[in-house]
């Protein structure tokens, strides 16, 4: 019963209770008015009719969502045919984001593990090295990657100079370039949570397993990985979610063939050629996908907490 009261510092934890509404109100107002309301407005727009010069006509329509699945011809009067263009873009986005996540995991896990097992004094330096690129402007990073891997870029020059290849590699404007770009954008998001969970991992567990005749890789698989799984899952979500809606990497590295959701949405709001309701609908679908992933994750978390 000791936890109920009388502990030192207890009264301080509610010292600001009388004015807490005033303290939190600015946040409520800012995010509520400039994010929640806009998302609501966007939802409304996705059910409106497109205006040809950008913008909308206030008339209810399901056309924006219909367009994802059916092709009704240029004037919308032909019998509906199944339309695969947009479904393909969404599917490609999911696949690209998943591959980028896998790349981050393959490189990020050993890195995080290696850093977490360094002496405390050098750990901070390694972590610093991993986080510095995250602080560098995302556009600058993506442009740098584009510069490095382009056809006559330093990478190809270097590889040709060493004689590894005779013809320049076509990396730019491929799926791989996009994956590389996404990997480069979000790698720290994978390393940091895994690092945090490996750092908390008690290596006595590994020793206990070794003592019970488990080999190194068995220990990794059966003891360490299950223990640090929450960190791995958090890392995967932190990479997957932003990758799904990424714009810069697909746009700068992927070229026109490798369209992802981000580029599709962006195109709908560019100049007069766009289709605002369609862009709003695509955004809603992307948002729903992300929320589903996050809800799934949150439910897992609460199940774990309850167990």
């Amino acid at each position: 019963m000791a936890g109920i009261g009388g502990k030192s510092g207890e009264s301080a934890s509610s010292a600001f209770a009388p004015i807490r509404a005033w303290l939190i109100a600015p946040t409520w107002l800012m995010i509520g008015f400039f994010l929640v309301v806009p998302v609501g407005t966007m939802l409304v727009y996705s059910f409106l009719t497109k205006e040809f010069r950008g913008g909308v006509i206030w008339e209810f329509s399901l056309a924006a969502y219909d367009r994802f699945i059916f092709d009704r011809g240029l004037f919308g009067d032909e019998p509906p045919k199944l339309e695969l263009t947009y479904i393909t873009i969404f599917a490609r986005s999911i696949v690209q984001a998943a591959i980028a996540t896998a790349l981050c995991l393959i490189i990020g896990f050993p890195t995080a593990f290696y850093i977490a097992t360094r002496p405390v004094s050098t750990r901070a330096i390694w972590l610093f090295l991993v986080t510095v690129p995250y602080w560098v402007n995302l556009l600058v990073r993506t442009v740098s990657m584009k510069f490095l891997v382009r056809e006559s870029g330093p990478l190809n020059t270097f590889l040709q100079w060493t004689g590894v290849i005779s013809e320049p590699l076509q990396i730019i404007n491929t799926d791989f370039a996009v994956q590389l770009g996404l990997f480069y954008s979000y790698l720290p998001f994978m390393v940091l949570p895994i690092y945090a969970s490996v750092e908390r991992y008690d290596f006595a567990l590994s020793e206990a397993a070794a003592d019970l005749y488990a080999g190194k890789w068995t220990i990794l698989r059966k003891v360490l990985l299950p223990t640090v799984k929450p960190g791995i899952i958090a890392g995967c979500i932190l990479v997957f979610v932003p990758s799904l809606g990424a714009f810069l990497a697909p746009d700068l590295l992927g070229g026109a063939k490798n369209f992802m959701i981000g580029s599709l949405i962006e195109e709908q709001f560019k100049g007069n050629a766009g289709n605002w309701p369609f862009g709003a609908a695509a955004s809603m679908i992307l948002l729903s996908m992300v929320l589903i992933v996050l809800l799934f994750y949150a439910r897992r978390q609460s199940v774990r907490a309850g167990a």
Partner: peptide, 17 residues
């Protein structure tokens, strides 16, 4: 012993509770 209320009593005298 732990949880007997002695710290609460002290905090009552101090004015924290």
């Amino acid at each position: 012993p732990s949880g007997c209320g002695k710290t609460t009593l002290l905090r009552v005298i101090a004015g924290f509770e």
